[in-house]
Every structure is written in C-alpha cells, then in structure tokens.
Simulated assay, not measured.
Amino acid sequence: MNQVPVDDTLSVNHIRLAQSKMPRMNAWVRCNLGLCIGVILPTLLSAAYYAFLATPQYVSEAEFVVRGQNNQPNLMLAGLLKGSGSGGGGTEDTYAVQTYVTSRDAAQLLMRTQNLKSVYNTPIADAIARFPNFYSGHTFEHFYQYYKRHVVAELDTTTGVSILQVRTFNANDSQRLARALLNSAENLVNDMNTRQRTNTIAASSHELHATLEKLSVVNEKIDSYRNEIAMLNPAQQSQPVLKDIASLQTMLITTRLQLAQLQRSTPESPLIEVHKRRIVALEAEIKNTETKITGSDTSFVPKISGYEDLVFQRTLLEKEVASADTAVAAAKLQADRQLLYLDEITQPNLPDYAAYPHALSNIAVVFAATFSVYLMIVLLISGAREHKLT
C-alpha cells in the first residue's frame, strides 16, 4: 500500500480549507456589497494613493512680528495684558501683513517674480496634488484657492508672533517662496509707513496752506484799502492831527485864562478884544480840525475802523499760521515716531524632510467619513423598511 508524504497531505488540506472558505467569503462580500464599495474600496484606494502615488511636500516656516512705536504699550499696561493672557502683538498692522501674504496681490507678485505656477505644475508632483489638476478649473481664481491652501499665515495671540508656512513639492522652492513673501511683506510695511507719514503730514500741511491763502487775501485787502484811502496807516497818520488839536486846545485854555485876568485887572484894556478874537479863531480852528477826525465819511474814524478791522483779521491769521506751522512740525515728529517695522524672528528654513501628506491620518479620515455615510444610509434604509412593514 502506497503512503502519501506528509508535506503533500498538508498542502492538500490547505487547498481544501481555502476552497471551503471561498464560498463563505464570496457570500460575505455579496451580503456586504455596500460596505465593500462605499467604505473598504475608497479606503484601499486612498491607501494605495498615499503609498505609491502621493508626492512628498515640504514646508518652509518663518516667524516675524510687526511692531511700531505707536503700538507699544507702557510697562504697566503690558503687564496687565500679559497677566490677562492677551497678546500685545495682535495689532491691525500685523493682520494687514498676514492678509497680504495670502492675498491675490501676493500670488500675482510671486507669479511674476518667482515663476509660481511652474512650482506647482511640476512633473514630479502627482496628478491629484499638482495644479492644474483634473478636478478643478484652470483660471486664476482656481489657482488662488489652491494657493491659499499652500501658503498660510497665522498669528500666535499668546506671543504676538506671526508664523508663515509655505508648502511646495521641493524644499528649495518652499524656502525661496517664503523668502520672497517676507521681502514683499517688508515692502508693504515700508509703503504703509510712507502712506501713513504722507497722510499725517498732509492734513496739517493743507491747513497751513489754507491759512496762508487766507492771510494773502487779507493782505491784498489791506493794500487795496490803503490805495482807496491814500494812507499807509490811518491810525498813525491821525496822530499829528490829534497833537494839533491838543496844542490848539492848550492855546485856547491859555488865552481864556489871560482874558479872564485882563477882565479882572484892567477891564478897559484893548487886549481884551484881541484875546476874544483869538479865542474865536482858536475854537473855529479846533472845530475845523476835529472834522478831520470825526463827523464824515472822509474823516479818520471810519478809515481807522476799516483799517484796524483788516489788521485784526491779519493778526488772527498770523497766529493761525504760526499754530499750523507748529502742527506741521508736530505731525512730522509724530509720523517719525509711528514708523512700523517688520522684524524677522526666524528666517525661512530649508526643510530636511517632507511634512505632507499625512498619510495615516488622511486614510483614517477617508475611512471614518465613508463609514459614517454608510451607517447613515443603512439606518435610513432600515427605518424605511420598518415603516413600510408597519
């Protein structure tokens, strides 16, 4: 009787065991076809993609802070903010810089200066990760949405430090683009400084120029008024007339005293008539001279009033000019104190290894998402069947 070798016997048993399991496996697959197609197949496909097709992506990271003398709080306030857990660096200027590096302007600048599109449209990148790809459009807006996923700027509110991350398929490209973005951000800060200084000084300078124009108009009015009345300074030119009136009044008083003495001492003196005639003449001359000061439109009083009104306006405007000039100097000093600075804390690094893709976590996300959808569908179908049976 022939004996079968032990090894052959084991092989035959394994084959029979496998053949016996095949129908059961096929039956399980048929019973769970939805699970296989909706959950297991996408998970296996994603695992195959990350294992064999996904291109490594490198992240270059840089840290910076935007500061200026206008947003540095005093020590007591800084201590209170620190004690309350608030960061002192979360200023609007910092957010402006962060917004810029992820903006369309920054993307277009990199396209012009750094050949940005060729960085992401490279043969080494897989068909899913590169741009353009088969599931998105080829317009600039589609590229900008792609750009925002690969260039990220975030603010650490605890420290006030901004973190810039640039992700590409090449370590050198990531570092180069991060450096270009920091340079463009620094140029933006310089432009903000220029605009801020210009706007700060422009308002004060405009006020100064407007006041100077008003002063020029008043000076022209004064010149026209002088030509009209044919006098340089009516107030000064009226002084000799006033002195003449005062002199005549003194002479009138003296003559009256002399007349009174003669009338008491020598009532029959012929000098009495002389003094009387002199008094009449002096009174007439005083009255005539006083009409040059007051009494008509051609007298000194209306001329002096009009002239002093214009001089008063000029004096006020001269004070306004001095005040506006001081304001311009103060605005220049304030503008210099409010200059912004972009300080680089860490330079863009050259990554040693790929930070993306996160294969295991992405596969887990695919499995969790598809399995959740599968369970929802199963529950809905079961609920519909139970409702139909009832």
Rank of each mutant, 00 (worst) to 15 (best):
P56Y: 08
P56S: 04
E61F: 06
E63I: 05
F64K: 02
F64A: 04
F64M: 04
G68H: 02
N71R: 00
P73K: 15
P73G: 10
N74P: 09
L75W: 12
M76G: 09
M76W: 04
L77I: 13
A78I: 10
K82V: 03
K82Y: 07
S84A: 14
G85Y: 03
G85W: 06
G87R: 10
G88Y: 05
G88H: 00
G89D: 08
G89W: 03
G90H: 05
E92M: 01
T94H: 02
T94L: 08
Y95K: 08
Y95W: 07
V97K: 04
Q98E: 15
T99S: 15
T99Y: 06
Y100M: 14
V101W: 07
V101C: 03
T102H: 09
D105K: 09
A106P: 01
A106L: 09
A107R: 05
A107N: 01
L109H: 12
L110M: 12
M111K: 14
T113N: 11
T113D: 10
K117W: 04
K117Q: 12
K117I: 12
Y120D: 06
T122F: 10
A125S: 10
A127Y: 11
A127K: 09
F131Y: 07
P132V: 08
P132H: 10
N133Q: 02
F134G: 13
Y135T: 13
Y135A: 15
Y135L: 15
S136C: 05
H138F: 10
H138I: 09
E141S: 13
H142N: 15
F143D: 11
F143S: 00
Q145S: 15
Q145R: 15
